[in-house]
Write a protein that binds this DNA or RNA. Structure first.
Length: 192
DNA sequence: GCGTCGATGGCA
DNA sequence: GCCATCGACGCG
């Protein structure tokens, strides 16, 4: 057996690429949230790519506003927003400054003996204590960050994105990615 | 197991 | 007036 090695934080260069490539590469990576002398870890199993202002499902398609400002900023920062008045969504800003792309973290598996149902973007934020106060956080710092997981090689399935039926021709783009073997993926699992 | 519905608040 | 959601309900 190979000796256990300390996992490394994902560097800025990992995030500074197209969301189309970052989204599948995030499957199997480890999300870490440190707060109040606690540390919660989870293995990411489901993501969605929002590929820029031309993508009608991407919030950046509405232009640069107070809400979408961080998406137009540097890669490797958190974009957290409120939806339906009660759920937070955690996204990761990718690509170059002014190229507004992001990856939505949709589901994960709790790690380290901690029990939680993280099978959906709202549940993930609720149970990992992610709030709008974390909007704009630098993910290469020490509060909220991701670790590489080089020995993890998930089998990845692609489907259309969830809950964006208003997005016309972008509705059917295969921009949702998940670990085909994980029980923590949200529904539906079928490539509808 | 399914489909449908309502909660709830920030934003444009 | 819209949501990148979730959980409760009714069905049969």
């Amino acid at each position: 057996m190979p000796r256990k090695r300390a996992l490394k934080k994902l560097p800025r260069s990992f995030y500074n690429r197209d969301a189309l490539h970052v989204a599948p590469d995030l499957i199997g990576k480890i999300l870490v949230h440190r707060f109040d002398d606690r540390e919660l870890r989870a293995r990411i199993v489901e993501t969605e790519a929002y590929v820029g202002p031309h993508d009608l499902a991407c919030h950046a398609s509405k232009g640069r506003t107070g809400r979408t400002e961080v998406m137009f900023g540097r890669a490797g920062h958190a974009y957290v927003y409120l939806i339906y008045g009660m759920y937070k969504m955690l996204n990761i800003v990718t690509a170059d400054v002014d190229d507004a792309q992001a990856v939505l973290i949709r589901a994960a598996e709790p790690l380290g003996g901690w029990q939680a149902d993280l099978s959906g973007p709202g549940k993930l934020c609720r149970d990992m204590h992610i709030t709008r106060g974390q909007n704009g956080l630098d993910l290469t710092a020490d509060e909220l960050f991701l670790l590489d997981n080089p020995d993890d090689h998930p089998k990845i399935t692609r489907t259309k994105r969830i809950g964006i039926d208003y997005a016309k021709e972008w509705t059917h783009a295969l921009l949702r990615f998940f670990d085909a073997d994980s029980p923590a993926v949200s529904k539906p699992r079928q490539p509808a």
